[in-house]
Design a protein around this nucleic acid. Structure first.
Lengths: 340, 340
DNA sequence: CTGAAAGCGCTTACAG
DNA sequence: CTGAAAGCGCTTACAG
């Protein structure tokens, strides 16, 4: 492979100085360099396939245009494919992402930051696999950082997160609208931050409608645990006519439970799932009606906040940007069958 | 935030020259620098919390210690969480990963490489969401690159991939061992590279055992398609006593189909799934017996090959490293019930 | 309008 | 054993 062309090569070919090359290529030539020479520089750069050495630029400008992403594996290894790819497509001006897996503990954060921190990233994104409180270490808080899908307990950092309570509420409302009154909420353990919020949104909506909430907790956000919990519930004396599952895996469990008990969805049982974008609820049969977390919008917003921050040098007002989770129609809800 | 310490600061504090600092910190001081001064440098570096500026190092050494990862979203957005995190934990000597989503097309590869290529990465990893042939563009082939979970059709590049055929074969063998003779293979569309290989391994094992293979193709590697195909199969005149699903999502569909038809797994139907590490087959109830793709081992091997290449400057023999997919016991297979 | 010069922070021969 | 010097490739005042 031939040696890469440098700015000097371009200058030589174009018959100008190195500075002129830099000015033209960075769009600062207007009113400084003659049109003829500008064209010569552009032409030379084209012929030599010149692209500036990013490392040298970084050293000079102390900007790398690399953003660090801190992420970790969630309960059940929830994937963040959608958010990660949305993050990338939101990048502009040559920003790139460097990704590190680091548990949200103090020691892991420190370790990740020291690997990343040697002047190699301009800013950081913390991307949580599921909504949680994120206690950022000092070194992280001090740098340009945006939290995605998690919140700063101290309200000091800029956060982009879904309205999980609203999603729980919306799921219940969709069922109330169809006429259901016996609605149960199947969640994971309530001390789990995300599932707790979802469940509390759902039970509040029930309470607001004057209904006593039936709550069932699966032992974990897993298919088999959802199956077990749903089976117990549906076998009880007075089974609900409708279920809200706070997680897709639980929803799969519900479908299995219903099938084994000979119940049809939605004729015998309506189901609304809260969606983590795992592509499970939309592959059920019938497709589950669900509240979808807008991963793509959230990622785009977080990326934009951080890039603006870096480009302008002004930190955004620290605040929580809360994103509504829209209802996506499936075919898993119907009016309740009249009880025999 | 205080200005970061530079090598000069360390030299000043330690009362030595900048070169001495560099030598000591890079472990080349042996026999050159007096023990006393070495200690002084180390002490000064400690007190100033000095870490070398990585960008400056990169400019000087023309090595960034950043590896580029090219990946894209597969059928159904298969996650690569496990492989990606295994990749990171395999990194040593300060190597970092910069990740780009780019479809395996020529144009997307080029675009990704031009973003990445400005001297900013030392080598590349191509990480496919599912086994496939990867046609690398010239610019990619010319750089240090290792393919992970995909293969070079021209056999020129170093590849790390699972033995998908062997996995299909192993699934069938596990069922044969239990005494099954009526074994069906449920796959996705056979023109799909990965599912095709898995299915052909399975059908060959059947043929080797003197059995006529029953093959069913789901229209897509989705839960609902698996459910539809499995339902048709299990409702046929002579349903199989055992099923191999070439994919976890298909396996979930099979479980749903069995449940709806009132069939118990494994009493009425045995199931072996090929596992993409989506954490689905292990969350079924009963847990599915499966052939697991060793994502962590594969990722570690690929990372090591590439790092060795970069550290020694010698490209490895271009070859396909094929990884066996081990059988992981679940509870989804049993001896066939004697037919009435 | 243009070109020579400084300097980002580091490493590595090289002369003492 | 040590220190002064060059240079990686760029950008940005600065003097003409």
């Amino acid at each position: 492979m031939a040696r890469r062309a440098t700015a000097q090569d371009v200058a030589d070919l174009a018959g100008v100085s190195r500075s002129a090359v830099s000015l033209v290529l960075n769009g600062r030539a207007k009113g400084l360099i003659s049109a003829v020479k500008q064209e010569a520089v552009l032409e030379a750069a084209r012929r030599l396939e010149y692209t500036p050495n990013a490392v040298a630029q970084s050293l000079r400008t102390s900007r790398t245009r690399i953003l660090g992403v801190l992420t970790w594996r969630g309960v059940g290894g929830l994937p963040l494919h959608l958010m990660a790819s949305a993050l990338q497509t939101s990048l502009n001006n040559g920003y790139k992402l460097i990704k590190m897996y680091a548990e949200p503990t103090e020691i892991d954060q420190r370790r990740a930051l020291s690997t990343l921190g040697n002047q190699q990233v301009d800013g950081m994104l913390v991307v949580a696999p599921e909504l949680c409180q994120y206690e950022a270490v000092e070194a992280l808080s001090a740098s340009p950082v945006v939290l995605l899908n998690c919140q700063d307990p101290h309200q000091q950092l800029t956060c982009v997160a879904p309205d999980e309570e609203g999603a729980g509420r919306g799921a219940v409302e969709a069922l109330l609208e169809r006429g259901h009154r016996d609605i149960a909420v199947l969640s994971g353990p309530l001390d789990h931050f995300q599932t707790g919020l979802r469940a509390s949104g759902a039970t509040r909506a029930l309470a607001d409608a004057g209904l006593a909430p039936t709550q069932v907790q699966a032992e974990d956000l897993r298919i088999d645990e959802g199956l077990a919990a749903a089976t117990a519930l549906l076998r009880s004396d007075r089974p609900p006519t409708a279920l809200v599952a706070t997680n897709e895996r639980l929803a799969v469990g519900v479908m299995l439970a219903a099938a084994r008990l000979g119940l049809s969805v939605p004729q015998d049982l309506s189901l609304v799932s809260l969606d983590d974008r795992e592509q499970l609820s939309n592959q059920l049969s019938p497709e589950a009606t669900r509240m979808e977390r807008p991963d793509d919008l959230m990622a785009a917003h977080a990326a934009e906040l951080l890039m603006d921050w870096l480009d302008t040098g002004r930190a955004p007002e620290a605040q929580n940007y809360s994103f509504v989770c829209p209802l996506v129609d499936g075919a898993s809800i119907a009016a309740p069958a009249s009880r025999g």
